[in-house]
């Protein structure tokens, strides 16, 4: 039996079990549903608001942006949260104590997070389409674009999350990851077109994947005329895929090295020390 193939297959089985657990654990599900539900309600209120030059309401414009943001934000925080939490509970050390356990663990987490995001994004789309006027999702080219952006986004977000999660060794410091991303969302044109921001902030926003995922989802779901309010009046399809791919490649190059370092440092006393540290603070 080829052990590498076996490790990946075991990881895949782990992913199926983890996804089933996530989708049947009320806490996990609420953690996703609540913020999304709040966001949709806010967007519904923005139905009446218009942005000058846009053919659809601000609410309809923000719906795809929200989906794009959710993929990046959800993907990164899920990976970071899992890696940080699993180091405190010993889940990671357990993986290390089994043959091929680390590969199985990582494949399991990557795949289950991807599946969780895909399921929830499709749910979000199913809720959003009938609620907002002006979204276009009737033709195969739209479906294809949506899928392409979704997959690219997941492929970029998960390794970024793995890199940040490997660097962050205590769930206590989750805020170090979450708050900067929230700040990033503010300058990424998610809830208001980025062109309304000062030039230098636009430049900052366009370095990071959140902006490009919002843009890609708007491209997939909004009428072509809506591109008028984007930077340069265009969807910049090639640039969008290129930037997301660059993030994916860069983080995939870094992730294995950092994950190996993280794994090497794992031991029973490291887990105990981390836990004692958390208890002291709480």
């Amino acid at each position: 039996m080829n052990t590498t193939v076996h490790e990946y297959r075991t990881g895949w089985k782990r992913a199926l079990i983890e996804t089933k657990i996530s989708l049947t654990t009320p806490g996990d599900l609420m953690g996703f549903v609540m913020p999304t539900a709040i966001a949709i309600v806010v967007l519904l209120f923005m139905q009446g608001a218009e942005f000058e030059g846009a053919p659809v309401s601000l609410g309809a414009m923000n719906m795809p942006s929200l989906i794009g943001m959710n993929i990046v934000f959800g993907g990164i925080t899920a990976m970071v949260g899992a890696l940080a939490m699993d180091r405190t509970t010993g889940t990671l050390l357990r993986a290390k104590s089994m043959p091929g356990g680390m590969t199985g663990y990582l494949v399991g987490h990557l795949v289950s997070t991807a599946m969780f995001i895909a399921v929830t994004v499709i749910a979000l789309l199913a809720v959003g389409l009938p609620l907002f006027d002006g979204l276009e999702f009737g033709t195969p080219d739209r479906w294809l674009m949506f899928l392409a952006v979704l997959v690219t986004g997941i492929v970029a977000a998960l390794p970024i999350g793995a890199v940040l999660g490997a660097l962050l060794d205590n769930p206590r410091n989750m805020g170090l990851v979450v708050f900067p991303i929230m700040g990033l969302v503010a300058v990424s044109g998610i809830f208001y077109p980025i062109t309304a921001l000062p030039g230098w902030l636009q430049a900052v926003g366009q370095v990071f994947p959140v902006y490009w995922m919002g843009l890609g989802m708007r491209h997939a779901l909004l009428p072509d005329a809506a591109a008028a309010v984007e930077v340069g009046g265009s969807w910049r399809t090639a640039t969008m895929f290129a930037v997301l791919a660059l993030w994916a490649v860069a983080s995939m190059a870094l992730a294995p090295r950092l994950l190996r370092r993280m794994s090497r440092r794992e031991s029973g006393s490291a887990v105990a020390a981390r836990r004692a540290d958390m208890q002291r603070d709480w």
Partner: peptide, 12 residues
């Protein structure tokens, strides 16, 4: 390997 305190995979 059986460690002093393991709380892994609690939801399983």
């Amino acid at each position: 390997v059986v460690l002093q305190e393991w709380r892994d995979n609690g939801k399983w």
